[in-house]
């Protein structure tokens, strides 16, 4: 053995520190991911998979958005994005979740801004792994456009690390 035992000990300590640093970094990233998708003091609704209740909630959110100064184009965008996010939660998020439990919808309407978070009980997904539906080879596939529409129409779309919660913001320009 060419290394001195003291050097070995130092290396061992350093490598332990390195591993724990890496772990901490991952934990920090996960935490930050969670933090990014939080809304401060939201209105929270447990929403069941019932069309009338879904429509009523969306109308209620949009009524408040209109009062907060969001115009036609903004309302169209927000309605589309919420519809897609709720559909994703129930259809894809809960695909293998027994009993299709309620999803959590959180929202907050500020002046000329709306924040919405939708969380399901599924295993989550990796948004960056969803194939680009605008590529020629995907154009005639009848699925896979919800995520891109949410991104196209909202100012900001963020997912938590697990991929079962999305937070969207629309800020009127």
């Amino acid at each position: 053995m060419r290394c001195k035992s003291s050097t070995l000990r130092a290396a061992k300590t350093a490598s332990t520190r390195f591993v724990s640093l890496a772990d901490c970094f991952r934990e920090y990233q996960a935490l930050m991911g969670e933090a990014d998708t939080q809304i401060q003091d939201p209105i929270t609704v447990e929403l069941v998979n019932d069309r009338e209740k879904i429509s009523a909630l969306i109308d209620q959110i949009l009524d408040q958005a209109v009062q907060a100064g969001l115009k036609d184009a903004a309302i169209f965008a927000v309605r589309l994005a919420i519809e897609e996010a709720i559909t994703n939660a129930f259809v894809h998020g809960h695909e293998h979740v027994p009993g299709d439990p309620p999803i959590r919808v959180e929202y907050k309407v500020l002046e000329r801004e709306i924040q919405i978070a939708i969380e399901d009980h599924g295993p989550g997904f990796v948004p960056t792994e969803v194939p680009d539906p605008t590529l020629m080879e995907n154009l005639s596939k009848p699925f896979g456009r919800g995520v891109m529409l949410m991104k196209a129409y909202m100012t900001e779309v963020m997912y938590n690390a697990k991929g079962n919660r999305v937070k969207m913001r629309y800020i009127a320009s």
């Binding site: 169209f76 309605r79 589309l80 519809e83 559909t87 005639s140 009848p142 699925f143 456009r145 919800g146």
Partner: peptide, 16 residues
């Protein structure tokens, strides 16, 4: 007035 990506999917299936 409004349609969703699921409606687009149905239109694509119809077109196919």
């Amino acid at each position: 007035d409004h349609l969703s990506s699921a409606a687009l999917g149905a239109l694509i299936t119809i077109n196919n």
